[in-house]
Simulated assay, not measured.
Amino acid sequence: MTTEDPAAPAGPRTRAERRRDTLARLGAERDVWLATAHPEHGPYQVPLWFRWDGRAVWCCTAAASPTVRNLRADPRARLALPDSSDVVQLEGRAACLTAAEVPGQAADGFAARFGWDPRTEEAPYVYLRVVPDAVRAWRGVPELRGRLILREGEWRE
Rank of each mutant, 00 (worst) to 15 (best):
M1D: 13
S85L: 15
P12N: 09
L97Q: 06
P47Y: 08
R119L: 01
D31V: 13
A56G: 03
T22S: 01
A77E: 00
E29R: 04
R151D: 13
R136D: 07
Q105N: 03
P132E: 02
T120R: 15
V102I: 15
A24Q: 12
A77Q: 00
D108N: 08
T14N: 08
E4Q: 11
R76G: 04
D117A: 05
P12Y: 04
A16H: 06
D117T: 06
A24S: 12
P66S: 07
A106Q: 06
R129Y: 02
R15C: 10
R13E: 12
R13D: 10
E154Q: 14
S85Q: 15
D53R: 02
R119I: 00
P124F: 03
C60T: 12
Y125N: 06
A8M: 13
W49R: 09
P66R: 15
H38A: 11
D74Y: 08
Q105E: 15
A80C: 14
E40K: 05
R136F: 11
E4K: 11
G104K: 01
V141M: 11
E40C: 06
Q105H: 12
R25M: 05
Q45F: 03
G92R: 07
A64H: 14
T67Y: 04
R55M: 10
P82A: 05
A94T: 06
R113K: 14
A28V: 02
T98H: 08
A123R: 15
R136Q: 09
R30W: 11
P39V: 09
A56F: 05
A106D: 13
D21A: 14
E4W: 01
W155T: 10
M1H: 12
R19I: 15
E4T: 12
R93T: 07
E101D: 13
R19N: 11
P142K: 10
C96W: 04
P47C: 09
R147M: 11
L71C: 07
C59K: 00
R147W: 05
R119W: 05
L23A: 07
A24T: 13
W155S: 01
G42V: 07
D5T: 06
H38Y: 10
R139A: 14
A95C: 08
Q89N: 09
P132K: 03
F50D: 02
R113F: 03
W33L: 11
D74P: 02
R136E: 07
A7D: 13
Q105T: 13
A56K: 00
E121Y: 10
L150V: 12
Y44G: 09
S65D: 12
R18N: 02
L81W: 08
A134R: 14
C60V: 13
A95S: 15
F114G: 02
A62H: 12
L148V: 15
T120W: 00
A64F: 09
C96L: 09
A111Y: 03
